[in-house]
Write a protein that binds this DNA or RNA. Sequence first.
DNA 1: GATGAATGAGACTTCATTCAT
DNA 2: AATGAATGAAGTCTCATTCAT
Lengths: 190, 190, 190, 190
Amino acid sequence: MTRTRPRADAVRNRKRIVAAAGEQIARHGPEVGIDEIAAAAGVAVGTLYRHFPTRTDLVAAVVAEYVARVADDAEAVLARVAAGARAADELTAFLGRVAETAAIHRAGKATARTLGEEPADRPCEDRGAAAVSAVIRAGQSEGDIHPDVTLADIYLLSATAPTGQSPAALARWLVLVVPGLTTRARRAPG
Amino acid sequence: MTRTRPRADAVRNRKRIVAAAGEQIARHGPEVGIDEIAAAAGVAVGTLYRHFPTRTDLVAAVVAEYVARVADDAEAVLARVAAGARAADELTAFLGRVAETAAIHRAGKATARTLGEEPADRPCEDRGAAAVSAVIRAGQSEGDIHPDVTLADIYLLSATAPTGQSPAALARWLVLVVPGLTTRARRAPG
Amino acid sequence: MTRTRPRADAVRNRKRIVAAAGEQIARHGPEVGIDEIAAAAGVAVGTLYRHFPTRTDLVAAVVAEYVARVADDAEAVLARVAAGARAADELTAFLGRVAETAAIHRAGKATARTLGEEPADRPCEDRGAAAVSAVIRAGQSEGDIHPDVTLADIYLLSATAPTGQSPAALARWLVLVVPGLTTRARRAPG
Amino acid sequence: MTRTRPRADAVRNRKRIVAAAGEQIARHGPEVGIDEIAAAAGVAVGTLYRHFPTRTDLVAAVVAEYVARVADDAEAVLARVAAGARAADELTAFLGRVAETAAIHRAGKATARTLGEEPADRPCEDRGAAAVSAVIRAGQSEGDIHPDVTLADIYLLSATAPTGQSPAALARWLVLVVPGLTTRARRAPG
DNA sequence: GATGAATGAGACTTCATTCAT
DNA sequence: AATGAATGAAGTCTCATTCAT
């Protein structure tokens, strides 16, 4: 009856499952077989089902993890900006990092929507949103970020970042997209 | 032994099937059931399979149709530019129109990839590509379109246009994305 | 679009499935695997599911069939009684016949209850009930059937008839049970 | 190497498991999940399996318990008859009591049969059988119980007693069934 | 001894595709 | 040529049993 520790191996398995699910969903889309996720995590299906009774539960966990990571990133960005870093540059870099993992974000959302499920970890999401908003305001004060840019724009762009393409495509996409956020036109080469 | 003409109703069925498939794929993603497509087209599965022996064949037809339509659009754009319209403006509008139907493009590609199939209607694709390239060159001559913009950029953007969101989101996305293609910065509001 | 015949083979399959389901449920209890029922019917699972999308649908069909058959039997009994046969004897024989197939009745009811489903074919059930009631009344007029016997008693007995045992056991059970319905004690042997 | 005494809590657990299994089987049929039985007993599955390595072992224990209880009852009946009680009345009451718990008997048998297992506790069974037989003979000497009634009839009736129905149904069933065991017809009411 | 997490075979169900009508 | 029933492989999920803690 001792309710104590949640058992070391169970915790490890849970983590591996969420990680594997994120990767498989990103790679093969939101309809990956549960069995494949389980195999990728190195556990049997039954174990996966013990931790996540429904597919929705699993996706929710994946999305929550992603949201938390992005929130951490956003807060680190804000800290650097507060310490004097250039907001526009930091925001660009942040957008690039978010884009890299956007596949999972998108897939997670798609699955969640399919299953009629609401986002997820509200606190984490709010935390990230607050940090990004602060960075935008900082950049606007500095005069670098266009005055009408809002948090929704960052959502829109991160939701449309290229996925499953070459890093070069992602880099090029950033080049094309950043001028829309700033007050400066692209310089002609040379 | 007369290769009888393709009966009127067969032709009509074929069209209805392709149209229905496009719509269903756009609406429900690339994994829609064949039965649903058949039902939406108002035919029985057997009929669908007579026209398109495999799912790949069907998707190929859908994509081909889409490509042809886009190619027509591109050529119309080119004609207007040749008649004096502003290339940058026309290209922006074109991108907006393509984005509207991008869902099907993306879904088609996804399905094609899933099934290890190569694009499709090469001639049509080339036709559209040539027209878009010509428009880009025209805009660059006029000094409006940034000199390093290429056809690949248009592909990249059309592949990442927001899908399944509000028209407002699409409009905003265009606002954000166009400055990256041109030589002008966004104007501060007011 | 011709809604005409329900296709000969489909009808045949449907019948075979219901028959097989009845037999399998009677033999192995209400939890028989769907696959086993399908195999016993000589069809693939998919076919079974086409006819009966849920297990409940299948059980309902089985019960309905059983109820219809019993109702027919009851009406035949009533006809014979009207034609002068002895009601008590006919009722006894009827009870024996019902008992023979009671397994399916019981199993069907159990499954239906499990799935929170209501009986079934009300009209058929009423038809049988009316006939049996009439027979009881006839027997009571003749003085053979005990005056307080009701339809509920027949239900009770048919619900508790021995199942899955030897015909001898069934015969013996009838011997033990009939005196409770009549006005006569069992005769001592010899 | 001392065959340590069966620890107090182990003994208690064993009892609780058998009791819970009996109740769950009676309530939900012979296919109850092992986990549910364990939960009802307040132990973990592992503990259940330590006491009863297979499901058959568990069912056997449940049935043995039931048989022992019935045997005790039968012997008490016999004692009362020996002390002058009316055998027919005692037998009727006994049948009623057995019927009340017949669900478990039936379920146990069903499970045992499913698993190809033979009855169980031969000595207890014999003990009960002997007592019931003696009561029958006593009643036959008294002239109340029909001369051809045997132990097998009691088995047959207890195996077909109504289960999971109202007490009223059970009472009515006794009314219907007892005349078959005795030499007297049912009296007309009034 | 007790616990509860892990396992994996097997049951249930769906759906792309085939084929008799 | 069209129809819709039949097929069966593949996916989802459950649960009896094992085993590390």
